[in-house]
């Protein structure tokens, strides 16, 4: 093997992995927060994520056709799109909880999970239906903004584009705000109390239903932000795009210890890095016998191994789960 070549691409691989990892971390937060409060896998979260991406692309296309995309300063456009995506996904997540999960809260465990799978499938085709009627197309491309595609060359083999920086900065900012919200505010204390013991929390005067809705709102908004960033970073989206990243983000949440917010961030980053490494080195190291396509298998194998040998994840489950 050509060692210098392998080492030479390493920084670029790590950088790509980091970006992917932040994306997974943002999505994983939605899974982990809901799990922490309800001990329930919100299977529809992958579609809540992709709805954020679609709202983002619609807004950008709208701005473009109004001629505002290049007229407005680009940070403003990005903030606008992010906020819109977050709002849409957050509201959608709350609605889904209200319609499909709340009536089933005391049913046997598999019942709400099956309902969530149903919602996930329904949303995929609902997006497709809407876009088919509205644009007569459901594979949409994010409009390019020239500023975002500027690349800085760090070394001869490593360069970083503005949009990658945007993804990293935005993800870091949101993770920071969430951390403060959960650990330093009264609402955050209420969320943690509900996660620990719903009955006791309600005796302390906490409106449990409202806190659960809020959890879905925050988790959904994080997913929506991830959706917009996903679109900005990778460009092409369709209604079914969300599924695999959703599954991997769930893996990330389990990897870090489900129900555990710092764990979701760590799990996302670790999984992103592992996947980027697998995608670039598997093919090189095996002489092309196993291509980058195996990175999906790699992620699922990580999930299975973690669940078997360390079911509480890297940082441990915060809530004593029944699982």
């Amino acid at each position: 093997m050509d060692l210098p070549l392998l080492l030479g691409i390493l920084p670029q691989v790590l950088l790509d992995g980091l970006i992917l990892g932040f994306m997974y971390a943002l999505i994983a937060l939605g899974y982990t927060m809901v799990y922490g409060v309800l001990e329930f896998i919100n299977f529809a979260h992958s579609e809540i994520f992709i709805v954020g991406a679609f709202v983002g692309v619609e807004l950008l296309l709208g701005l473009k056709s109004a001629g505002l995309l290049d007229a407005l300063p680009w940070p403003l456009v990005l903030v606008l799109v992010l906020v819109a995506g977050m709002a849409a996904s957050g509201v959608l997540a709350v609605t889904v909880e209200r319609v499909a999960y709340r009536p089933l809260r005391h049913a046997p465990r598999l019942i709400p999970l099956i309902s969530a799978i149903g919602i996930s499938f329904f949303l995929q085709d609902a997006i497709r239906l809407f876009e088919s009627l509205w644009r007569n197309a459901f594979n949409l491309v994010y409009p390019t903004m020239d500023v975002l595609n500027v690349r800085f060359e760090l070394t001869q083999t490593v360069d970083v584009s503005v949009k990658s920086l945007v993804v990293i900065v935005a993800a870091l900012a949101m993770l920071g705000v969430l951390h403060l919200l959960v650990n330093r505010t009264k609402v955050g204390t209420a969320i943690r109390a509900v996660a620990e013991d719903q009955a006791a929390a309600s005796l302390m005067g906490i409106n449990v239903n409202r806190i659960i809705s809020l959890t879905f709102l925050i988790g959904g908004a994080m997913g929506g932000a991830a959706g917009v960033l996903f679109g900005v970073q990778y460009g092409l989206i369709n209604p079914y795009t969300g599924f695999i990243p959703g599954l991997k983000a769930f893996t990330a949440a389990v990897l870090g210890g489900i129900g555990n917010i710092p764990g979701a961030m760590l799990g996302g980053l670790v999984l992103g890095l592992l996947e980027a490494l697998a995608a670039s080195y598997l093919s090189l190291l095996t002489g092309g016998a196993f291509g980058a396509e195996y990175k999906d298998i790699f992620a699922f194998s990580v999930l299975i191994v973690i669940l078997i040998f360390r079911p509480k994840g890297l940082l441990g489950e915060v809530i004593r789960g029944r699982a």
């Binding site: 499909a100 089933l104 709400p112 099956i114 309902s115 149903g118 085709d125 609902a126």
Partner: peptide, 13 residues
């Protein structure tokens, strides 16, 4: 998918 989804949700509820 939409059909499957509606079946699953409505049946569960």
């Amino acid at each position: 998918r939409m059909i499957f989804g509606i079946i699953l949700v409505l049946m569960m509820i």
